[in-house]
Structure formats: structure tokens, C-alpha cells
Design a protein around this nucleic acid. Structure first.
Lengths: 180, 180
DNA sequence: TAAAATATTGGACAGTGTTCATTTTCGTGG
DNA sequence: CCACGAAAATGAACACTGTCCAATATTTTA
């Protein structure tokens, strides 16, 4: 997946490379969608691992380190990372519990960091704020990876994301105005 | 495209529905990628049109209206909107000039609105700030559309995006600290 | 060792993008 | 009205895809 990307990924090709027949993959995973979901779940686990390792090495500037880790992983595994978002389940179907847990595990790590950076009176909103900041950082990462930023002349996407996070966290500091 | 989404889109099916043969589509567009790019370019034009119409109707809260228009279009044309980001050109190739112009046209509209909301001393940074705010809003929209926000319990994505934009613009108001 | 359970196979099917020699259609000058 | 050249449209052929599933092979159990 990381080699060819979601668009050119092929279950048949995987079967060929691991020395099994195509039927076996379907027996094991049940469907193409489930197969992709398993791969993306693994990518999420690798991503979380990368994030944890980066945070282990740092005392200060932990939010900054988290953002850097976000961009690092996306850059190092562009295709596998993009596949997480390129793939979409059928309208109705919800992702399996395991997959959701993996997403929430990453989320929880970031929540802890955000909460630590917030003023005491705002720690209760840590989850909502984290969802929003994660989305912001993700948007910057998407535009960096898909060429939108290049088109618009942005040359330091991670720094821009960091600026936005700093602003938000600053606004949540004692003696500030913004709500939510 | 808007009907079936990028993953299930088929040039052959299009040919069938418009009463032409598959060969004709290739004669006209040259390749599948070019075909998709033409469709996505049209989607961008429709998106810009929607944005313009929404801004025409408003005097105050224009930034807020722009964000709402962003989410409105993505919601009303989920598949076509997603296709803009699901499709990726081969690593090296750059999108055709026409496509880039369409992206920049939308960008320019937003820049004007952001500039108007900024303090005079910051108007020079309007483009960089707009790139970043667009990315933030985009990230919120992506998470809203692909189910990530649902997984994490976020119920008001557009409002969260608006909060982040307000914070950023507030920080760029006279008597504030943040740089960049 | 025999029987039952599990794992693996690969052919068949309907679909895809892509190419391109062939055919059809159209506009124009005689 | 016809003929001829240019432009437009065709669809068969190719190599690929996901999906299914009866048949086969392997392993475990009795």
C-alpha cells in the first residue's frame, strides 16, 4: 500500500507477492473493504507508535512535537497515510470497533497533551478543543501533501499549523475572551 | 460523479449514459486522469459559484458566511466534493493551468474576505493567513464528512471551525501578541 | 489410520482503463 | 447534387481488477 498508493493497490498483487492465491485473502479478510480497513488500521497503529516515540523524547514543547510527528509520519508514508482518508466505507456501514479504537487511541494521546497545555478553567473542554485542533492540523497536512499549498505558495505548512494551535491555546489562557 | 463517488465512478458508464462510446471520451479528454481533472475543475467552479452567491447576500459576518458556504457545498455534493481530494495526479505531473486557476480563483475570493477582517498592520499577511485558515476549515470539513468527527463525538464541526477562525483573526487585531 | 475440520486453490464472471484501426458523419468546393 | 477530405465516433481487443465458490489439499482430531 505504501509503495503504490490506494488507487493502484491490488489485492491480487498482494496475494502474488506473499505467495498465496487471491482466494485466500478473501477467506481471511472477507472482502476488499475489510482488507483495506485492516491495512489502514495497521497504518494507524504505526502512526500512533511514531507519535508516542516522539513524545517520549521531549519534555517541553510537546504540542509542537506532536504536530511535527503528524507531518513526519505523513511524509514518510505518504501513500499509506493518504489511504486512511482515500478509502471510504459504504454510506451506511460503520468502521469495525477495532478500527475505531485505534482512532480514539491516537486521539486520547493528543487530548492529554492539549489538556496539559490548557489553563485549569479550560481543561474540561480539552476533548472538544483537541478535536478542533486535530482537524486544523490535519487540514494543513492534507494541503501540504496533496499540492494545494504548493499551488498557493505556502512553504512552511507545519509552522503555519503550529501558529494556529498556539493561537487557540493562548486564547484559552486565563484573562482571555474567546468562548467555547 | 456526484451520484456514485470517485471510487465507483466509471468512464464507460458515463459514455453509456450520454449515448456515446467509450472511445469518444478518450478522444475528447485524452486520458482518464484528464477526464477526472475536467470534472473536478467543473466542481470547483460550481463551488466558487456557490461561495459567491452566499457572499452576495451578506454584509456582516462575511467570514462566517464563507465557512458556512464551504460546509454547505461539501454536504450538498459530498461525492463530487470528495473527488477533488480523492484524485491525485502521478507524483511528478502538475495539474493543468486551468485547474490551478480555478483553485486560485476560490482562494482569491477568500483572501479578500480575510483581508477585510484583518487589522491594517496585518493586511500584508492576508495571503499566508488565508492559506492557513482555509486549511483549518478544510480539515474540519474533512473530518465532518468522513466520519472522524462522528467517531470522536464532535457534533458541531462548522461552529468549531468558525471558533478557530475567530481566534486567529482576533489574534491579528491591534494590541495582540502572536506573530506570523 | 480414518474421518472430520480447516485452509487453500484457481477458474469463471462481470466489470475496469486504454489503445487504435476502422467506420461514420459532416462541411465544403465543384 | 455529388465527391472528396477532414473530423468525429466507434467498438473489439487487451490486460487488468474485485468477487464468488465448488473443488482440492492439508492439518487436526478421534
Amino acid at each position: 500500500m505504501d509503495e503504490v498508493g490506494f488507487a493502484h493497490f491490488s489485492a491480487r498483487e498482494v496475494a502474488k507477492r506473499i505467495g498465496y492465491s487471491i482466494g485466500t485473502i478473501y477467506n481471511v479478510f472477507g472482502s476488499y473493504d475489510a482488507f483495506i480497513l485492516a491495512i489502514n488500521g495497521r497504518t494507524l497503529a504505526l502512526w500512533r507508535d511514531h507519535l508516542v516515540r516522539r513524545l517520549e523524547k521531549v519534555q517541553q514543547d510537546r504540542l509542537r512535537a506532536a504536530i511535527t510527528a503528524y507531518f513526519e509520519f505523513a511524509t514518510a508514508h505518504r501513500h499509506a497515510w493518504a489511504a486512511i482518508y482515500d478509502f471510504r466505507l459504504p454510506e451506511d456501514a460503520a468502521p469495525p470497533e477495532r478500527y475505531q479504537d485505534e482512532v480514539r487511541a491516537i486521539f486520547d494521546i493528543v487530548v492529554a497533551e492539549v489538556r496539559a497545555a490548557l489553563a485549569p478553567s479550560r481543561k474540561g473542554d480539552a476533548e472538544a478543543i483537541t478535536r478542533s485542533l486535530l482537524a486544523s492540523v490535519h487540514g494543513h497536512c492534507v494541503f501540504a501533501m496533496n499540492g494545494t499549498f504548493a499551488m498557493l505558495g505556502e512553504k512552511a505548512p507545519a509552522e503555519a499549523a503550529w501558529d494556529r494551535v498556539q493561537e487557540a491555546v493562548s486564547a484559552m489562557t486565563p484573562g482571555q475572551r474567546n468562548q467555547r
